[in-house]
């Protein structure tokens, strides 16, 4: 699969990647390497220029409509002023498939509370969402995605702006989710530690796929190749990159 926003600048080239159902894949790479673009393609928000993407055998748009995909974006665009409780936010995605004339089924309501329990937010279920801290809101959003019972859960840079303790807590939560719900997890991050803590395999991405295998395969040579590519790529298109930011987080 290949993709470009601008005909002159390829963003993703000749990507061939299969993720086994039930596995945990971390997508790692420098800023501007095409990680978020790849997620948008998997979510069906963009169409590949060449090739195709199948999500459990269906087109990404169809998989999204079936409710098979849960997504936690890097920067939440949520409207914090909305007068909604934690429970209402957690229920938002799961209730999309309930017919308009029906009220929320009791088993679905229980499942939403269970997911809030899983992420440790049940005790705040009746609190307004705007009163929660950033880390608490992130856990509510994870519960929202989980409550819809997706077959694939996608995290885009989930630990950006979170301190070391929060990062460890997130790693533990990821392991709990995988053990409890057995769903496929896709985690995009420029922080290799997060991927090593919570994933079975890693895909190193910078315009093209440099490696797909275990995290131990991410050697200093691979990192040098990937981040060098980043420097050259950005220099060609205006020289605004700061590759050291990506490297420093992996050191």
């Amino acid at each position: 699969m290949s993709f470009r926003y601008n005909p002159a600048v390829p963003v993703l080239e000749s990507i061939q990647l299969t993720v086994p159902a039930g596995s945990r894949l971390g997508i790692f790479g420098p800023n501007g390497g095409g990680k978020s673009t790849m997620l948008k393609l998997i979510l069906g928000l963009l169409e590949p220029e060449q090739g195709s993407i199948r999500v459990f055998g269906q087109s990404p748009a169809r998989a999204a409509r079936q409710g098979w995909v849960g997504y936690l974006p890097q920067r939440s665009e949520a409207v914090w002023q909305a007068p909604l409780t934690v429970r209402q936010v957690a229920a938002m995605q799961a209730q999309q498939h309930v017919e308009p004339w029906r009220s929320l089924p009791a088993d679905l309501a229980r499942s939403i509370d269970d997911m809030l329990d899983l992420v440790g937010m049940r005790h705040l279920a009746d609190r307004p969402i705007g009163e929660l801290s950033g880390g608490q809101q992130q856990r509510v959003f994870i519960a929202r995605a989980l409550a819809a019972r997706p077959r694939l859960l996608i995290f885009d840079e989930p630990t950006v702006g979170i301190d070391a303790e929060g990062r460890d807590r997130f790693g533990r939560l990821l392991n709990t989710i995988h053990k409890t719900l057995k769903m496929t997890l896709l985690l995009v991050s420029h922080d290799l530690r997060v991927i090593m803590d919570g994933c079975d395999a890693v895909a190193v991405l910078s315009q093209t796929l440099h490696l797909h295998g275990s995290a131990e395969g991410v050697t200093p040579e691979v990192l040098a190749e990937v981040f060098h590519h980043d420097i050259v790529g950005h220099d060609r298109s205006g020289g605004q990159s700061r590759p050291s930011a990506g490297l420093s987080s992996t050191e």
């Binding site: 928000l45 409509r65 974006p73 665009e77 936010v89 995605q93 999309q96 308009p100």
Partner: peptide, 20 residues
């Protein structure tokens, strides 16, 4: 009739789009 999709659309448009 459209209260559920409308609520998700109003609260979080990006996630609404990704959820179909």
């Amino acid at each position: 009739w459209w209260r559920r999709p409308m609520l998700l659309y109003v609260f979080d448009e990006t996630v609404a789009r990704s959820a179909g």
